[in-house]
Amino acid sequence: MEVVLSLAIGVLTASGIWLVLRPRTFQLVLGLSLLSYAVNLFIYAMGRIRVDAPPIVDGSVPADPAQYTDPLPQALVLTAIVISFAMTALLLVVLLASRGLTGTDHVDGKEPD
Protein backbone atom coordinates (compact mmCIF):
# COMPACT_ATOMS: atom_id res chain seq x y z
CA MET A 1 0.00 0.00 0.00
CA GLU A 2 2.68 2.47 1.05
CA VAL A 3 4.86 1.50 -1.91
CA VAL A 4 1.99 1.90 -4.37
CA LEU A 5 1.00 5.28 -2.97
CA SER A 6 4.53 6.66 -2.87
CA LEU A 7 5.21 5.35 -6.39
CA ALA A 8 2.03 7.04 -7.60
CA ILE A 9 2.99 10.35 -6.00
CA GLY A 10 6.52 10.08 -7.37
CA VAL A 11 5.48 9.29 -10.92
CA LEU A 12 2.84 12.02 -10.95
CA THR A 13 5.31 14.60 -9.60
CA ALA A 14 8.05 13.64 -12.03
CA SER A 15 5.73 13.73 -15.04
CA GLY A 16 4.21 16.97 -13.81
CA ILE A 17 7.56 18.71 -13.42
CA TRP A 18 8.71 17.51 -16.84
CA LEU A 19 5.53 18.81 -18.46
CA VAL A 20 5.68 22.16 -16.64
CA LEU A 21 9.14 22.71 -18.08
CA ARG A 22 7.91 22.18 -21.66
CA PRO A 23 7.37 25.20 -23.92
CA ARG A 24 3.70 24.68 -24.95
CA THR A 25 0.85 26.04 -22.90
CA PHE A 26 -1.25 22.89 -23.06
CA GLN A 27 1.61 20.82 -21.69
CA LEU A 28 1.89 23.39 -18.93
CA VAL A 29 -1.76 22.96 -17.94
CA LEU A 30 -1.47 19.18 -17.96
CA GLY A 31 1.73 19.34 -15.94
CA LEU A 32 0.17 21.56 -13.29
CA SER A 33 -2.85 19.24 -13.10
CA LEU A 34 -0.61 16.20 -12.58
CA LEU A 35 1.36 18.09 -9.93
CA SER A 36 -1.80 19.00 -8.11
CA TYR A 37 -2.94 15.35 -8.15
CA ALA A 38 0.40 14.40 -6.65
CA VAL A 39 0.11 17.07 -3.96
CA ASN A 40 -3.45 16.00 -3.11
CA LEU A 41 -2.36 12.40 -2.66
CA PHE A 42 0.57 13.61 -0.58
CA ILE A 43 -1.64 15.60 1.78
CA TYR A 44 -3.84 12.55 2.10
CA ALA A 45 -0.87 10.36 2.92
CA MET A 46 0.27 12.78 5.63
CA GLY A 47 -2.75 11.72 7.70
CA ARG A 48 -1.18 8.23 7.78
CA ILE A 49 -2.63 5.43 5.74
CA ARG A 50 -5.43 3.53 7.44
CA VAL A 51 -7.67 0.97 5.79
CA ASP A 52 -11.23 0.32 6.92
CA ALA A 53 -11.30 3.03 9.56
CA PRO A 54 -14.03 5.72 9.65
CA PRO A 55 -13.04 9.39 9.97
CA ILE A 56 -16.17 10.40 11.87
CA VAL A 57 -16.57 9.61 15.54
CA ASP A 58 -19.60 7.56 16.47
CA GLY A 59 -21.29 9.52 19.24
CA SER A 60 -23.07 6.56 20.85
CA VAL A 61 -19.95 4.81 22.13
CA PRO A 62 -16.93 6.33 23.92
CA ALA A 63 -14.39 7.46 21.33
CA ASP A 64 -11.08 5.65 20.99
CA PRO A 65 -8.70 7.54 18.66
CA ALA A 66 -6.98 4.32 17.66
CA GLN A 67 -10.15 3.14 15.92
CA TYR A 68 -10.43 6.13 13.62
CA THR A 69 -8.50 7.65 10.75
CA ASP A 70 -7.47 11.30 10.88
CA PRO A 71 -10.28 13.38 9.36
CA LEU A 72 -8.34 16.63 9.02
CA PRO A 73 -6.17 15.78 5.97
CA GLN A 74 -9.35 14.68 4.21
CA ALA A 75 -10.88 18.07 4.87
CA LEU A 76 -7.67 19.81 3.78
CA VAL A 77 -7.42 17.79 0.60
CA LEU A 78 -11.01 18.63 -0.30
CA THR A 79 -10.19 22.33 -0.10
CA ALA A 80 -6.99 21.81 -2.08
CA ILE A 81 -8.82 19.85 -4.80
CA VAL A 82 -11.44 22.55 -5.25
CA ILE A 83 -8.87 25.32 -5.40
CA SER A 84 -6.52 23.59 -7.84
CA PHE A 85 -9.48 22.61 -10.03
CA ALA A 86 -10.62 26.23 -10.21
CA MET A 87 -7.10 27.44 -10.95
CA THR A 88 -6.76 24.91 -13.79
CA ALA A 89 -10.01 26.17 -15.29
CA LEU A 90 -8.77 29.75 -15.05
CA LEU A 91 -5.44 28.80 -16.59
CA LEU A 92 -7.27 27.23 -19.53
CA VAL A 93 -9.04 30.53 -20.17
CA VAL A 94 -5.74 32.43 -20.02
CA LEU A 95 -4.26 29.83 -22.38
CA LEU A 96 -7.05 30.40 -24.89
CA ALA A 97 -6.74 34.16 -24.59
CA SER A 98 -2.99 33.95 -25.10
CA ARG A 99 -3.47 31.69 -28.13
CA GLY A 100 -6.01 34.11 -29.57
CA LEU A 101 -3.92 37.23 -29.05
CA THR A 102 -0.47 35.98 -29.96
CA GLY A 103 -1.37 33.31 -32.53
CA THR A 104 0.96 30.76 -30.97
CA ASP A 105 0.76 28.29 -28.12
CA HIS A 106 4.30 28.98 -26.95
CA VAL A 107 4.41 30.09 -23.32
CA ASP A 108 6.38 33.24 -24.20
CA GLY A 109 3.80 34.36 -26.74
CA LYS A 110 6.29 34.02 -29.61
CA GLU A 111 8.17 31.20 -31.23
CA PRO A 112 11.86 30.99 -30.31
CA ASP A 113 14.14 32.21 -33.09
Binding site: L91, S98, G109
Partner: peptide, 8 residues
Protein backbone atom coordinates in the same frame (compact mmCIF):
# COMPACT_ATOMS: atom_id res chain seq x y z
CA UNK B 1 -2.06 38.17 -21.18
CA UNK B 2 1.47 36.90 -21.83
CA UNK B 3 2.75 38.28 -18.52
CA UNK B 4 -0.43 37.03 -16.86
CA UNK B 5 0.16 33.51 -18.13
CA UNK B 6 3.59 33.49 -16.47
CA UNK B 7 2.21 35.06 -13.32
CA UNK B 8 -0.63 32.54 -12.96
Amino acid sequence: VTAGLHYV
